[in-house]
């Protein structure tokens, strides 16, 4: 009887042995940097030194992968800054220059295609009707008679629902109002996508594909650094540009051929964005949801 029990426990041991061996082999195949990355804490909880170490490792990793010198910034939000965005609907001609400037600047996947900005064409007669809007319009020239265009990206809400539903706290609102994602903590559950009423979040269903010669090596940890498969990404007001010392405009603002896009600090009484808010009447999308966007549409006329 005792012998039988012994035999059984030996059998159990041999059954578990392959699993144990496989686990050991997996751990052994990981180098220490990969292991560190896997065990990394949430970005918000890291110390300055830990952040610097992570950023350095990422720079090395990306430089090796893409054959270019990469810079990964971890620049925090500046004090006294709250970013806001305004778009002049009477000027937008729907040319989609902003879409592709954003794709290039923020290393968005070309195939499978991800666009953080979506330009919606609507009929003037029907008014603002998202259900019947067309994002795939393709005429010879724009603007078309009887149509207007509403570009939609992340509205950088003051009361963002996407951050409250995240089970791992991988997405949050920074002090300067930018809603960011820690790609190392995102588990790809897509709850945030369901919670966002603007369809501003995008999921990497496949391995993101950006050609080596088109990759932008000037990146931010919480912004345009290369993303892995299975994480959610979104517009960050070009965090890698706007948090630079001299302050750059987001790529979409710079590229707009008609100057329909305005960007600035809502806390600065002399900023262009404050002028617009104080002197124009603005439209915020889905105001009834109380998400309180910091993305305002206005009519310059």
């Amino acid at each position: 009887m005792q012998n039988k029990e012994k035999n059984s426990s030996r059998r159990e041991f041999f059954k578990k042995l392959p699993v144990l061996a496989l686990g050991t082999a997996t751990l052994a195949s990981c180098n220490s940097k990969e292991l560190d990355e896997f065990l990394q804490q949430n970005f918000k909880t890291l110390t300055k030194a830990e952040k610097a170490e992570i950023v350095k490792n990422l720079e090395e990793k990306y430089s090796k992968k893409y054959g270019k010198k990469f810079s990964v910034s971890d620049a925090p939000a500046d004090e006294g800054v709250l970013f806001g965005y305004a778009l002049d609907l009477s000027r937008c001609i729907g040319c989609r220059r902003c879409v592709y400037a954003c794709v290039g600047e923020n290393n968005q996947s070309r195939d499978p295609q991800i666009h953080w900005i979506s330009v919606l064409q609507m009929e003037k007669e029907k008014g603002i009707d998202f259900a019947h809007s067309n994002a795939n319009y393709n005429p010879e020239t724009v603007p078309e008679e009887g149509h207007f265009y509403i570009p939609v990206a992340c509205q950088q809400c003051r009361n963002p629902q996407c951050t409250t539903v995240c089970p791992t706290k991988a997405t949050w609102q920074e002090e300067d109002g930018i809603v960011v994602v820690d790609y190392n903590w995102c588990i790809g559950c897509r709850y945030c996508m369901a919670a966002c009423p603007y369809g501003a979040r995008h999921f990497n269903w496949g391995e993101p594909n950006v050609p080596n010669d088109e990759i932008n090596p000037d990146t931010h940890y919480l912004g345009n650094r290369p993303r892995p498969k299975g994480v959610v990404e979104k517009c960050t007001f070009c965090i890698q540009r706007v948090r630079k010392e001299n302050g750059h405009y987001p790529a979409c603002v710079e590229i707009c051929p008609v100057g329909a896009r305005k960007f600035g600090n809502l806390l600065d009484p002399n900023s262009e964005i404050r002028y617009i808010l104080e002197n124009k009447r603005v439209l915020v999308l889905k105001e009834e949801l109380n998400t309180q966007p910091k993305f305002y549409y206005f009519f310059g006329i």
Binding site: C95, V99, Y100
Partner: peptide, 20 residues
């Protein structure tokens, strides 16, 4: 406002490719 207004800009451009 949209119904009443005409686009301020007289520029005509070929749009960039539509998303897939």
């Amino acid at each position: 406002l949209i119904k009443k207004s005409n686009t301020e800009i007289n520029l005509q451009l070929k749009p960039e490719p539509a998303p897939i």
